[in-house]
Design a protein around this nucleic acid. Structure first.
Lengths: 196, 196
DNA sequence: TAGATTGTTAATCGATTAACAATC
DNA sequence: TAGATTGTTAATCGATTAACAATC
């Protein structure tokens, strides 16, 4: 709506666009503060700003990627990050063959530099794109360097202190969820939940 | 537990391992059927089989990947799929430069072959790893070829009929969620939800 | 002033959990 | 038979939503 230049919007219209109930939308927005005007609605630009601020999108974040296989390269080259306030500040790998390579304009650094570079460049989010076997060890080092936010693509469950947030992107689980629904569709009414 | 050879397990132990309430765990399992034994617990192997069957993991699924950039290559080479019943049956790209290349043992086929190959090989799940601008068009073609399950990595919201399931993996959103919590941690008690 | 729409209260709904009869 | 543990009922809890006073 901001891109289309809409000036104000009602909770009713916003809720319809989001596919939720308008009372719920108003209640959720009220958690951020009282940014609407009774009888008028919400000013789009102002609401975008307030939500962005609340979500931490007005800050810039330095991100490091560990592991420069196909996935690491794909992530480093993904343009969507920069526009959303994420700056790839470092790229690491253990393989001397790729250390020194240029990936998306960044020099691949050796994993030995991990702690020093994280601290020097103020990296606060680390993306793990290593092989599964290396993930926990790298995770431990990253945590001891003071990082408390990790995005894990390695197919392992990481053990971290409670103070550290880990999000896991598990490609197999995504496919499994699709397969589950696919099976349901194919089975049709014969496969109700209750059937044996 | 199955890998460790555990024969039976109580709902209490299973719930502790999963980090949920044991009553909830029993209630959830009861939706699948009555697979426990009172006074004894659940037989691990049997429960694994029943859950796998319910989730559709005992079947094999043919998957096609469209787009052979870094991400498409990473997906094609990801070993975790095969072990979970997903077989990469085809890999497509629009670029004549990469058509004919070998990716993870598969011949990259031209996007023109999309519909024919999907039907011939019984592909039921398609992974979109195309650039954002191409995603909707490829999606439309895939849907008209009869595919009803799509995993979308392109940073666009796809429009599909209600009968089609789309799951979206949005890397920026994953980072945004981490950044949100990071901001909260950094702000500390001064940044309670209610504060203005 | 009349109409519109927010922010919030109170009612409703569904999910979680404690408790326990059934039963191995 | 005594102890253990499931499957399910009923109570509790929290989330969603209808309704409406506040107010632009």
């Amino acid at each position: 709506m901001a891109e289309r230049g809409t000036a104000t919007v009602s909770s009713e219209d916003l809720a319809a666009a989001a596919g939720v109930n308008s009372a719920k939308l108003r209640k959720d927005l009220s958690h951020l503060g009282s940014y609407g005007t009774r009888g008028v609605g919400y000013e789009v630009e102002y609401l975008v700003y307030q939500i962005s601020r609340e979500l931490g999108l007005t800050q810039d974040w330095a991100v490091a990627i560990v592991g420069v296989g196909n996935l690491g390269r794909a992530l480093a080259n993904y343009g969507g990050f920069v526009s959303r306030g994420f700056r790839i500040a470092a790229v690491f790998d253990a393989d001397p063959e790729v250390v020194g390579d240029d990936i998306a304009g960044l020099n691949v650094e050796h994993i030995d530099e991990l702690e020093a570079v994280i601290k020097r460049r103020g990296v606060s989010i680390v993306v793990l794109a290593t092989p599964a076997v290396a993930a926990q060890e790298v995770c431990d080092r990253v945590v001891s360097a003071g990082v408390t936010s990790i995005l894990n693509f390695a197919p392992v469950v990481l053990t971290v202190p409670d103070s550290v947030d880990v999000r896991k992107v598990d490609l197999s689980i995504e496919l499994q969820i699709l397969a589950f629904h696919e099976q349901r569709k194919a089975g049709g009414p014969l496969m109700a939940v209750d059937s044996q």
